[in-house]
Structure formats: structure tokens, C-alpha cells
């Protein structure tokens, strides 16, 4: 591959532009798909017996009477100015809700990632090193089985074992802003474990596959022929070249993790973004639903961008041009 005279910035700039464009398209999709739902916020708020006059008044108040594209424009301009709107059900600013919930979700996702990323990386290297042997088969079987089960099933199974039978942890993870770090870790143990089960298998198998795919390359044969030990061949010669794809998969898995938090938070009644999302949908609190969906989408896109950057940075041809 010849990178010509391209620098990291040259390679990244188009990707960043594309990411912004994607986010814009997603905002369109979110806004107009909510628009497609039957009924509107006014109806949802006033219920079925509302009079036509009352509905009309409320619509005027909420500015629901202007055409959709005008409202979209208003919404996106407000978003860009940092005004996320007001919750219809509670009347609180959406930004306040986010400020409360977002850190909780990132805490849970971060905790899960802190377990699953090193775990799957190490297991991936070990299974590559002992490929086709008992360790490899065992780890792969467990990982595959865990990732094939739905998140909520794993969650309830864990609750059954650790809360109901063993009584080590409470079955729900209600934390308050006053909770200490130790308390938080204790209470989020089960949801984090659930997420680890859901995400590790993919990272582990990709780590293993990326390393193994390099083992037939000439420089690996050369490393063997120059007398490098088999462990060093994997760790010192294959792994550095596999870092790009592995980092890529890790970032993608993390994006998946932030999204699968929705189900897990609901099961454990954890006060995070996912729970807020589900609640808002059931209450037809459209401003909140839209903003939370945008937050999930942005997280996904940013993590994808990070994945690209890491993969590029792991390429010595780009970091050390001729």
C-alpha cells in the first residue's frame, strides 16, 4: 500500500466530514420517524377525551401547528445552540435530565468495558497461542454461548444466581447522586457483568482471528526461522500488526455496549439514559426521546471514528512516511 505523501490529517479529515454528515442524516431520520407516529404530543398529554379547542390551544403553545420541516429546523438550530428543549411530562429541561442520567450510563458502560476489554484481549491472545487445544475450545465455547443468549436472559439468570440464591448483591441497582464509588461499583456489579457477557465474545474471537490470520505471513515464518520462541512470535511479531483490527473491533463493541445498555438498565432499574429512554417512549415525551436517540447515535459515530483513527495510527506506514 502506498500512502503517497498523505498525512494523518489528510486521511482523517474526510472521515470526520462523513461522520458529521451521518449525524445530520440521523437527526433527519429520528425527527421524521417520530413524526410518522399516529397522534401527537398534544393528544398524548391531554388523553382521549380532550376537546378540539383544548388540543388546538396546546398545539399552539407547543408550536406544533407549524409544518414539520419548520419544526425540524427550529429543533436542530436549538440543538446546535445547546438548547435541548423541555420534557413534556415533567417540564424539566432535557439538559438537566441528561446531566443526571448520562454520567450514570457512562459509568456503567465504562465499568463493563474495563472488565470486558482486557479480559477478551488476554483471552484472545491465549486462545491464539493455544489454538485448537482444550483451552481454546473451552473459552470459545463459553464465549459463544454467552453471546448467543439475549441480554435480558443473562441478566435474569445472574440475578437468580447472585441475588436470589447466593444473596450477595441486590437484584436492582438503584443509585443516587450521593452514592459513593464503592457503593456504585457494588450496585452495578451485576449489570456490568451482564454487559461483559454480551460483548466479550466478539472482541475475543476477533482478537484471536486477527492474530491467526497473520500467522501464515512471511514475516511470521521468518520470526520462527530466526529462532524466536512461539510465545514471542504471537506477542512480539503478530500482535503489533493485529492491533489495528483489534482496536477497531473494540471501539465498535463499545458502541454496541452503550446501546445495549437500554435493556440492561431497564432490567436492573438503573437510573441511566436507557431507562430514561424507555420511560420517555411510554410517556410519549417526544423531545426527550429525540435527544436521547441523538446521544446514542453520536456515541456510536464518535466511537466508530475513534476506531478508524486507532486503526490508522497503528499503521507504521502512515506514522513513519518514507
Amino acid at each position: 500500500m502506498n500512502w503517497g505523501g498523505r498525512t494523518l490529517i489528510n486521511v482523517l479529515a474526510p472521515r470526520i466530514v462523513l461522520a458529521v454528515l451521518t449525524l445530520f442524516i440521523i437527526s433527519l431520520v429520528i425527527f421524521f420517524s417520530v413524526e410518522l407516529l399516529p397522534g401527537d404530543t398534544a393528544e398524548a398529554m391531554l388523553g382521549h377525551d380532550a376537546t378540539v379547542e383544548a388540543l388546538a390551544t396546546l398545539r399552539r403553545e407547543l408550536q406544533l401547528d407549524s409544518p414539520a420541516y419548520v419544526r425540524y429546523w427550529r429543533w436542530i438550530i436549538d440543538l446546535l445552540h445547546g438548547d435541548l428543549g423541555k420534557s413534556l411530562s415533567s417540564g424539566r429541561a432535557v439538559s438537566d435530565l441528561l446531566a443526571q442520567r448520562l454520567p450514570n450510563t457512562f459509568f456503567l458502560a465504562g465499568f463493563a468495558a474495563l472488565i470486558s476489554v482486557p479480559l477478551s484481549f488476554v483471552l484472545g491472545v491465549i486462545t491464539a497461542l493455544y489454538r485448537e487445544r482444550a483451552v481454546d475450545r473451552g473459552v470459545n465455547f463459553v464465549a459463544l454461548a454467552a453471546s448467543s443468549l439475549p441480554d435480558f436472559f443473562v441478566a435474569y439468570a445472574l440475578i437468580l444466581i447472585f441475588s436470589v440464591h447466593l444473596g450477595w448483591v441486590p437484584p436492582i441497582s438503584i443509585i443516587s447522586p450521593e452514592s459513593s464509588l464503592a457503593e456504585r461499583l457494588y450496585l452495578t456489579g451485576l449489570p456490568a457483568l451482564t454487559l461483559t457477557f454480551a460483548t466479550s465474545a466478539y472482541m475475543l474471537r476477533m482478537t484471536r482471528a486477527s492474530i491467526l490470520s497473520l500467522l501464515s505471513s512471511p514475516y511470521i515464518e521468518m520470526a520462527r526461522l530466526k529462532g524466536v520462541s512461539s510465545g514471542r512470535v504471537i506477542v512480539g511479531h503478530a500482535l503489533p500488526n493485529a492491533l489495528g483490527p483489534i482496536a477497531n473491533v473494540t471501539a465498535l463493541t463499545l458502541a454496541y455496549l452503550v446501546v445495549s445498555v437500554v435493556v440492561v438498565e431497564t432490567v436492573f432499574a438503573y437510573p441511566g439514559l436507557g431507562q430514561l429512554f424507555v420511560d420517555s417512549v411510554s410517556k410519549r415525551d417526544i423531545p426527550v426521546v429525540q435527544v436521547v436517540a441523538m446521544v446514542f447515535a453520536s456515541t456510536y459515530i464518535v466511537l466508530n471514528l475513534v476506531a478508524d483513527m486507532v486503526a490508522l495510527a497503528a499503521n507504521p506506514r502512515l506514522m513513519h512516511p518514507r
Binding site: S217, P218, Y219, E221, M222, A223, R224, L225, K226, G227, V228, S229, S230, H237, P240, N241, P316, R317
Partner: peptide, 28 residues
């Protein structure tokens, strides 16, 4: 054994491959 052979390689008997471009590790 594979271990004994590994210790011979490089130190006692060394190898020069056809395509150096492919045989050097690109990461180091």
C-alpha cells in the same frame, strides 16, 4: 524437540529469505 530447534535457529543456523520486503515485520 521444537524448543531445541528454536535455540539452534538464529544463533547457530540462520536464514535469509527471498523477499525481504515481506519477511521483515512491518511494525518494528
Amino acid at each position: 524437540t521444537e524448543r531445541e530447534r528454536q535455540l539452534l535457529r538464529g544463533a547457530d543456523i540462520a536464514y535469509v529469505a527471498q523477499s525481504a520486503g515481506a519477511s521483515f515485520n512491518p511494525a518494528h
